[in-house]
Each structure stands twice: as C-alpha cells, then as structure tokens.
C-alpha cells in the first residue's frame, strides 16, 4: 500500500514553524518512513501532485496568493492543520490589522519620514500578489480540522501530532507542550 502523502506550506509566516518541524531531528527519518512528502518547502514541488492525507499550514493569509494556496491545500488534503499562532490567530502579521491598509501603504511608501519615492508609486508590479485588506487566520478562509498552538509549536508538539494523525489515534499533548509562559 502506498504511503500517505503529506504537504506543507508557509503563508504569511516566518518559516519558524517549518524550522520547528526540522527540529524533530532524526525523528524526521521515522516520519519519512511513515509518509511521502508532497508539495513542501522541504522538497520544493510548486503544486500538490497527488491527493494528500495531511496538509500542514504555517502562517495566515495576508495576500491573494496565500488564499489561492490555502484553497489549493483544502481541495487536495484530507486533513488540514493550522500550525502555529500565525495560522491559528494571525500572529505578528495581523498587527497590521490595527491600521487600515491604505494608511499602512501610504506610510510605508509615500509619507514615511525616510521614504524616497519621487514617482510616488505604490508597489504595483504584476508579479506581486495583491494584499488583502487585513490578515486573516486560516480558519476564516477555509475549514481547518486541527490547530496546533505555539510560536512556533515545539518539535515535540509537531511530532506527536503527526504521529497521532498518521496512526489514527487521539492527539495527546501534555500540558508542558502547550503551556507557554
């Protein structure tokens, strides 16, 4: 029987959650025995190639491309997990939600004290995805099955969650893994 496939992506995140995933150290070999990696920064596929059992999402949605990728994951993964605080709650990027987008961009590109922009152009290259009016957490955009808290969730948290999902058992996260102060 083919191994289940797993896909991961980082949207409006800092890749810290992916670093935490790598931080499971040699246990990644155990994971590799259990699954095949599909689209992921780890293997560099750009699109999901076949139906995946699990999708891990780092980061929320700050632009239209994030939304497109997240929807692509939702369509192609059986179980979608928000990994880390940006995916579950917006996190640091969502701080910009306190300022209207237009004001934010004006300050950054037109009116800030250190801005030199004689043409007074906002970034408008067609290669750049359009920013959303605010940063959305993942479950505001698609249905999310599980949330892993943490900034980032520790390697142990991610490992235990993955193993539980793959073995069809209940995720058991001891208090120490989800206590942050």
């Amino acid at each position: 029987m083919a191994k289940p496939r797993i896909a991961t992506t980082s949207l409006a995140g800092c890749f810290g959650c992916h670093m935490s995933l790598l931080d499971i150290d040699d246990r990644i070999l155990q994971v590799a025995e259990l699954v095949d990696f599909d689209r992921s920064p780890i293997v560099d596929f750009k699109r999901i190639t076949a139906r995946c059992a699990i999708g891990l999402i780092e980061g929320g949605c700050c632009n239209e491309e994030n939304v497109e990728v997240l929807r692509h994951f939702r369509k192609n993964c059986d179980v979608l997990v928000s990994v880390g605080d940006c995916a579950t709650m917006g996190g640091i990027p969502a701080l910009r939600n306190l300022v209207p987008l237009e004001e934010c961009l004006r300050e950054a590109y037109l009116e800030g004290p250190t801005v030199h922009n004689p043409e007074r152009r906002m970034p408008d290259d067609k290669e750049l995805p359009l920013l959303l009016d605010k940063v959305y957490c993942c479950h505001e955009v698609v249905k999310i099955d599980y949330h892993l808290p943490g900034c980032p969730p520790s390697a142990d948290t991610i490992f235990r969650a993955l193993v539980a999902l793959l073995s069809g058992k209940q995720v058991d996260l001891p208090y120490g893994l989800i206590k942050f102060d």
Binding site: R71, R74, K75, D133, K143
Partner: peptide, 16 residues
Amino acid sequence: DGYRRGFDLEGAVRTS
C-alpha cells in the same frame, strides 16, 4: 470544497 463562505476575497482585495 471546504471554503469558508464568510470569506469575501473580492471585498478583501478591493482596496489593493
């Protein structure tokens, strides 16, 4: 498809 019906992409990119 599991998309959230409450999310309005059209509205979210309008300012941009």
